[in-house]
Amino acid sequence: MKLYYSPGACSLAAHILLNEINVDFDLERVDLKTHQTEKGADYYEINPKGYVPALEINPGLILTENVAVLPFIAQHDPKQDLIPPSGLGRAKVLEWLGYLNSELHDEYAVFFNPQVSEEEKERGYVTIDKMLKYIDDYLGESEFDYLVNDRFGPADAYLFVLTNWSNVIQHDLTPFKNIVALRNLVAERQSVQIAMRDEGLIP
């Protein structure tokens, strides 16, 4: 498999999960401004949508969108720890991925528009805080350390990556103690440390 990625983008979640399942895979960096890959390919020819992640499963067979890519990678975990194979547990993973992808991701994305106004930023902070409070309250009431059960999975990786963007947009996560605790758990994983080093995000 090959993962097309941009450092620190939402493709980092797929990078983390690929490390978790311990398979051989290739990485190819994408410049999201020029839409050229590090090998000089036109990224639009690989993924006409133009954004990451794109997972090349076999030559010419491309899977996109985190709500599809992350479960696909997780189901290849030989220990079967990353995602329940069926039933309510799997549905809950997909529920969280849907929320993170369509709601929280979109609100953070507002800040990466170079033409965003100060007024739009202020509204964005309020909306992000509202969404994070929902997640934080959920975690506070849950008997588990992770979003779905007592095991790390795709939704945890995705939440970790999205909330990393708080550092970029000068957004304070400290009021969300349960999210911070989850982030600390995730950050300790070898798969995360390797992915972040490979993408140049940490030394």
Rank of each mutant, 00 (worst) to 15 (best):
S86C: 12
D77Q: 09
A109Y: 15
E120V: 04
A74F: 02
K130S: 11
I135F: 00
P154H: 02
I179D: 00
L97M: 08
R151A: 14
P71G: 00
K177P: 06
K121C: 14
G87S: 07
S117M: 12
E141K: 15
L104Q: 06
W165T: 09
Y158N: 04
V93H: 10
P114C: 07
I73W: 03
Y146I: 00
N178L: 04
K177E: 11
P154I: 00
I128A: 06
P154C: 03
D172F: 01
P78R: 01
L182H: 02
N167V: 09
L173S: 08
A74E: 02
T174N: 10
L182P: 04
Y99A: 07
A74N: 07
V110L: 15
K92S: 05
V93N: 13
G87T: 05
D129C: 10
T163L: 03
N164R: 11
M131Q: 13
F160K: 09
F152A: 06
V116W: 03
Q170G: 10
S86P: 12
F144V: 02
V161E: 03
I73K: 07
D81C: 14
Q115N: 14
I73N: 03
S86Y: 14
L162W: 06
K79C: 11
A74W: 00
A109Q: 11
N149I: 03
S117K: 11
S102A: 15
Y99P: 04
Y99R: 08
N164S: 12
L147G: 05
S166V: 07
H105C: 03
H76A: 06
Y108L: 08
P84M: 05
Q75A: 14
S102P: 13
E119Q: 13
N113S: 09
G140V: 05
V126G: 10
Q80G: 15
E118F: 15
